[in-house]
Amino acid sequence: MTELTPGFADPVLGAQSCFRAILEAMSRPGRLQRVAGIEQPPAPLGLAAAAALLTLADADTPVWTDAGAAAEAWLRFHAGCPLVAEPREASFLLATGRIPSLATLAQGSEEEPHRSATLIVEVKTLAETVGWKLTGPGIETEHRLQVAGLPADFPRQWAANRAGFPRGVDVVLTAGPWLAALPRTTRIEEA
């Protein structure tokens, strides 16, 4: 068994700074935020994906991931989160390959729409002056976001997710140290 690499160099301030990046991302959908504080995230996790889970997941939040045994061991050790096999049981999901269909994830209820999943997806690249046109809360006029590495039907799945508001899934897209978020309120128009 290989040795586990460390989590945040400074667990308290690392998590604080990463949380602010995620809060800013969720508040301003499509804007890229850069995360730091972990030297060597376990492959195939990028820095932002690994940091986001260390920041938000713990014993109270079941996590689903397809990232493999090394990443699972790292998460279990550093975040102390239970890992689940069924995507619908997870509070947080971390997809590095094919993403689970949004409709199968926890959506919350009409009364408790906050009891819904957050899906973190490690994508190939993120760029913010081209691509999708995003509108909705958090966006003054429009933000642009280009994502390489999501399935072709993602915009269609997203439209269905958005139509279920206030129920629905929130998404955090990560690429290496970068992340951007899509809260369930964001409208995506393909350019």
């Binding site: 949380f19 809060l23 969720m26 906050h114 309120t185």
Partner: peptide, 15 residues
């Protein structure tokens, strides 16, 4: 803090 941070993110997602 983690528990409050999770609540904050959902609160932002559901204005």
């Amino acid at each position: 803090k983690r528990m409050i941070r999770r609540a904050l993110l959902k609160a932002v997602a559901i204005p």
